[in-house]
Design a protein around this nucleic acid. Structure first.
Lengths: 210, 210, 210, 210
DNA sequence: GATGAATGAGAGTTCATTCAT
DNA sequence: CATGAATGAACTCTCATTCAT
């Protein structure tokens, strides 16, 4: 039986209740979008009836809001933690940002697709709150790049464009990355760190492209 | 005033029939997505009844397919024309690619959003055909970057990652660019050309960031 | 070219206008019923546009009414003509009735299906008028059978049931008869004449079953 | 009063769910045909909303299929039961067939109309299955008549035509019979038994026409 | 006459949501 | 907590009919 007690201490139990619903919603909404997904689709995938879903969430919209809010909060928090551990060097800080941005989006590949494409389905006021968090996240990148430029470590005259492009390209990996593909996640991180440094005119790294 | 009879020979007449429907569909689907848009929404915006739409398109899906197919064909064709006129120099060719990619997406900002986010709503076999065209478009970038690397003009060891990232960041401008913003389209092109060259390790340009 | 003038004096020209519409309507309504047939279906089969049909008939209902009225009138008229030519003998008269009833329904097999199954789609007052004609037709049979009984030629004590059953079984052939089947129309007539006579307790015929 | 609580143990409760829908569908479709009946018509008559109907049936077509399949199965089963209880005498067997055929169609007068007129609205593969059952039913009649002829009990040289005509005329009663009319169902049965025997050239019965 | 675009009503069906059980 | 029947609105799409051309 799946998840039978004691058989495998590392086995994750099938999620139940709220967690199962959120996980199911991420899966189906990532594939068909918010409006292309019915409450029944979510419930069926989570293993309960449509009616039962309403014991956990007030509405389909609340399911989306929960996914989006938790996602952006986790990203922000992990980003800040990474920066805290990265020291003072702009190069190290930028590399840390790229690493966390990519790894986060790879780990939650489908959730990320929701974040980028279903913003329009988010209703106010959650939508505005979400956009604010996204802007915060962008500003963390902006600040690192601007600091690097100021201190002469980064040579680009296009700090803000580079910063935005870095976020865009890192977020974009979720749309095409495949775990069974040519590159591992770690290799991908190394290469995008190098790309990011190239964009900001940072010092050329030793070869570490895997 | 726009559309005033006879007053302005350059005034574009309000589109009718098929053209009006496509234009309306792009507008309204870009905002709410394919599944979030009803046939009535499209028809209303195009100035006709929902039933009348079916004189021009067999289904809502056919409207989407038409938009997506025309869009990717136009992009491919403009990209090829740009390359044809760009000469042999990898730098010039890459700049041409970035220019056309960005200008195209700015001019048809909302149509682009459809292209990137509504692919999942496209039904087979149109979807597969569309993906093939997108891959062609990506390969045009790949080829230019690879050629530059081979000829020693570009120094990057990450040709294929850089190539993909360039396409992603250029396509991404449609998501945030505002014509009333800080930068004009032409300035944006110049800056992204520089960013792209930086990513592939191309020669540093003279300053032309506007 | 099909129907080229003079090439074949027996070739029937493709019907046009009203006739083409009626013929198309019979074909298509016999297959899908009145409500299962659209004006476009009829028009397409008749070789014109849906709008053009309204130059010939005021409505879809009028097309049906025309078909039904012409059909029942023709049947009644042919039945009366047959009786007029059948002389005085009840056996000959009944045989004449069966003959005309069967041949009529075979010749216009699809139109007959309309007559029996689409009565409910006929709107008032045409419907009532049609039912009256059907009753007239039934009464022609009733009268012949009753006359035969009265004169001692037919022995049945069930004159009215037999009379109705004869009409029902003769009308019913249109539902299953196939011109490429085992029996020709003429053979069918002979056999049903014998069946009808058996039902009314008429004199046994010499063997003429073909 | 029908349905008064507890007052009458023989009172049939108003049907609910599936049964109510089927009963309502038979009623309205018998009157207007499959295509002339909307899902809303059925639902309204069954006392629920159009959407609720889809909890019980996947489609309008499935409602029709259910009605048709249950009807023909019941008829076949009752016919076989009647034959099993009729003994060996061809006369008794034919009388049993006519009895069950007529009583069945009288009891389910409206359902029968569906069976004969809405066959064309049945979609494959149900339609083919239904036709096969109808052919089985016809063959039961064919066999009894043929057996009677073989054993010299029936004198007709038109066994197969008579057999078909008997089925047609018995089925036909549903189209015109009225419970408030001149004849009771039982009287009708007696008369049609006599007619059927006359058609196959069976022995003349004693007078039992009621 | 004929066409084809248009309409408004209504078709079958799905949906988010509620609630008695 | 969970279910499944129910609802009413909305969905995509088709229809009979009209009318300018």
């Amino acid at each position: 039986m799946a998840g039978a007690a004691g058989s495998d201490p590392t086995a994750r139990p099938a999620p139940v209740g709220e967690a199962a619903i959120l996980q199911a919603a991420i899966a189906v909404m990532a594939e068909h979008g918010y409006h292309g997904t019915s409450v029944r689709d979510i419930a069926e995938r989570a293993g309960l009836s449509a009616g039962a879903l309403y014991h956990h969430f007030a509405s389909k919209q609340e399911v989306l809001a929960t996914i989006m809010e938790r996602g952006i909060k986790a990203l922000l928090s992990r980003t800040r933690t990474a920066l805290d551990g990265a020291g003072d060097d702009p190069v190290a800080r930028l590399r840390a940002l790229v690493e966390v941005q990519i790894l986060f989006h790879l780990q939650d590949q489908r959730g990320t697709l929701l974040g980028t494409s279903e913003l329009r389905a988010l209703e106010e006021p959650v939508r505005t709150r979400h956009l604010a968090k996204r802007a915060q996240q962008q500003r963390l990148f902006d600040a690192v790049v601007a600091d690097g430029v100021e201190r002469g470590v980064f040579a680009t005259p296009l700090a803000s464009e580079a910063s935005r492009a870095i976020v865009v390209m890192c977020t974009g990996v979720a749309a095409w990355f495949s775990p069974s593909g040519r590159l591992s996640g770690r290799q991908l991180v190394a290469r995008y760190q190098r790309l990011a440094l190239a964009m900001v005119g940072g010092p050329a790294p030793e070869d570490d492209t895997g």
